[in-house]
């Protein structure tokens, strides 16, 4: 039965790369539940193929290649469903994401700082949406605001956060 040559190290790699792999798969699929399924399948394949991974080589590239294949396979299986992206675009995004997602740790640190800078009300709104997983319509009803307006507010918060992270990353790169 296949297994990693250095299991502890492999589990560490796998754990450390979860966010990256998740972002990568979500970027190619843009369908939350299917992307989560593919992430689980990818983890299973990575574990099964672990003996093929050479310790010391690029885990990131290896894992992303396997994740990419799993995304392709998921597309193939659900050929009757609509796809957001055609194969060419998905491939293009995949090759760019490998580089762009290489270092999410710094982005995560930046997010923590940017998040704390948000007004309290915006943080509360994000918590309702992401922590409590309330649908936009439910939030809108309880705040007596149109759903479209809540959606727009959430968009603006996310845009602001992305801009803040971007500034923080480019400051860091400039140092």
């Amino acid at each position: 039965m296949a297994g990693p040559r250095e299991p502890e190290q492999f589990v560490q790699h796998l754990t450390a790369h979860q966010t990256r792999l998740r972002a990568f798969i979500h970027a190619l699929m843009a369908d939350w539940h299917r992307a989560e399924d593919v992430l689980q399948e990818t983890n299973a394949v990575l574990w099964r193929k672990a003996d093929q991974f050479e310790p010391g080589t690029n885990f990131h590239a290896w894992a992303f290649a396997i994740a990419h294949n799993q995304v392709r396979l998921a597309r193939l299986r659900s050929a009757r469903d609509r796809h957001h992206f055609d194969e060419t675009l998905a491939d293009q995004l995949a090759s760019e994401a490998i580089e762009q997602f290489a270092d999410l740790d710094h982005r995560r640190q930046a997010l923590a700082i940017c998040f704390d800078k948000l007004p309290k009300k915006q943080r509360e709104l994000l918590a309702r949406r992401y922590t409590a997983n309330e649908p936009v319509t439910t939030i809108a009803k309880s705040l007596r605001r149109p759903a479209g307006s809540i959606r727009q507010t959430l968009y603006r918060i996310r845009t602001a956060l992305a801009d803040c992270i971007g500034r923080s990353m480019s400051r860091e790169a400039g140092q």
């Binding site: 966010t19 998740r22 972002a23 979500h26 970027a27 293009q92 995004l93 760019e96 994401a97 762009q100 997602f101 999410l104 982005r107 995560r108 997010l111 923590a112 998040f115 994000l126 918590a127 992401y130 922590t131 409590a132 996310r158 956060l161 992305a162 992270i165 971007g166």
Partner: peptide
């Protein structure tokens, strides 16, 4: 546009992980 899209996807995942962890 692709670069911005990937940034926004990364943000979405990180927000989920951060805020779900706060739950």
């Amino acid at each position: 546009a692709r670069q911005r899209y990937l940034d926004l996807v990364a943000l979405q995942i990180m927000l989920h992980e951060k805020l779900e962890g706060d739950a």
